[in-house]
């Protein structure tokens, strides 16, 4: 008898990572906070007026870049329902859509900020927190766990603590913090990720914005599945934010929500937030398999992606 080659497999022993449909670019047309809402529809119209030419530019840039000119561009809009609750979806969403339409803008996807913390039993923020790998200062050899200030993340070494002067002791002079990858001089950034009052943890705005970027880049998985896939809404807009799905698809024909790259058109007042977001994102270890999936797909259609994920994110501050 010839030898028999046996194959044996166990599903529970394998890692299965779902893939996600991807556009070329996801453009964030705006981010609505309570203060913007209170300022009235004029503020929104002003925002969309500024955004419109940039969206047109991005579309044409990608048409040139993609073989055959078939660029997949999707647009999204984020409403803050995490830090403050205001209005209702039924009242607010039509107002936003109307203001956008005035400038010939179509919002393909609408998302809730609180979904970046938790939604549908998936705690996206925790998921990302567990994937943080601290940027090690020189002389980090693994012998001790990384020095952490609970709830904070920085891009270098903090200033040594200067203790109050003891009766007999000498005051220790101040020493500067240092950025790890400095070029000549440091730009030291220390970001608060969350705070806790009692049992309730409040994630910081930059942390949720970092989760939002990862979601738009299609780089998150929960137990191998794609978290918070966009949902098409049947019937009208609900009267409560909690009844609204995390990501709503407004145009059934829209290009996929997640994309190889993202562009956010923002007011310059968000500059410090985005510096913090980039500080966080440059310390998130995305799953190897997910990175390979995205790289393989983009190469397959002749699009060369930046290796580092922070380089896939761009901004226009207007």
């Amino acid at each position: 008898m010839t030898p028999v080659h046996a194959t044996f497999g166990e599903v529970a022993a394998e890692r299965r990572i779902a893939s996600v449909p991807l556009s070329h670019v996801s453009v964030e047309l705006g981010h609505l906070y309570m203060e913007d809402f209170e300022a009235g529809p004029a503020r929104l119209r002003e925002q969309f007026r500024k955004v419109a030419p940039w969206l047109a530019t991005v579309r044409s840039l990608w048409r040139e870049r993609v073989p055959g000119g078939r660029a997949r561009v999707s647009t999204c809009f984020l409403v803050d329902d995490y830090f403050s609750r205001f209005s209702t979806p039924a009242e607010l969403v039509p107002m936003v859509l109307d203001a956008a339409a005035e400038h010939d803008l179509t919002i393909d996807y609408l998302a809730r900020e609180s979904a970046c913390a938790q939604s549908d039993g998936v705690e996206l923020a925790r998921l990302v927190e567990d994937r943080l790998v601290d940027d090690p200062p020189p002389e980090t050899d693994g012998s001790r766990p990384p020095v952490k200030e609970t709830g904070w993340l920085c891009n270098g070494s903090r200033s040594p603590r200067t203790a109050p002067v003891q009766a007999m002791g000498k005051a220790r002079p101040w020493e500067p913090p240092a950025q790890n990858a400095k070029r000549g001089h440091s730009i030291f950034v220390d970001v608060e990720l969350w705070d806790e009052r009692g049992p309730r943890r409040t994630w910081s705005c930059p942390f949720l914005a970092a989760v939002w970027q990862l979601l738009r880049l299609g780089l998150l998985r929960s137990d191998g599945r794609v978290p918070l896939p966009p949902v098409t809404l049947d019937g009208g807009w609900p009267r409560d934010w909690d009844e609204l799905p995390a990501v709503v698809r407004l145009d059934p024909q829209a290009a996929p929500f997640s994309a190889y790259t993202t562009l956010s058109v923002l007011s310059p007042r968000f500059l410090p937030v985005e510096l913090a977001v980039r500080t966080i994102l440059s310390q998130v270890a995305v799953d190897d398999e997910v990175l390979r999936q995205v790289a393989g797909r983009s190469e397959g259609e002749g699009v060369r992606l930046e290796e580092e994920l922070v380089d896939r994110i761009s901004y226009v501050f207007v």
Partner: peptide, 23 residues
């Protein structure tokens, strides 16, 4: 997910985590 294989012996493997070093 934790990967578990049952044959010929139960073997469970945690997800992988990374630690940064510069040394």
């Amino acid at each position: 997910t934790v990967r578990v294989s049952r044959r010929p012996i139960v073997h469970a493997l945690s997800p992988e985590r990374l630690t940064g070093v510069d040394c």
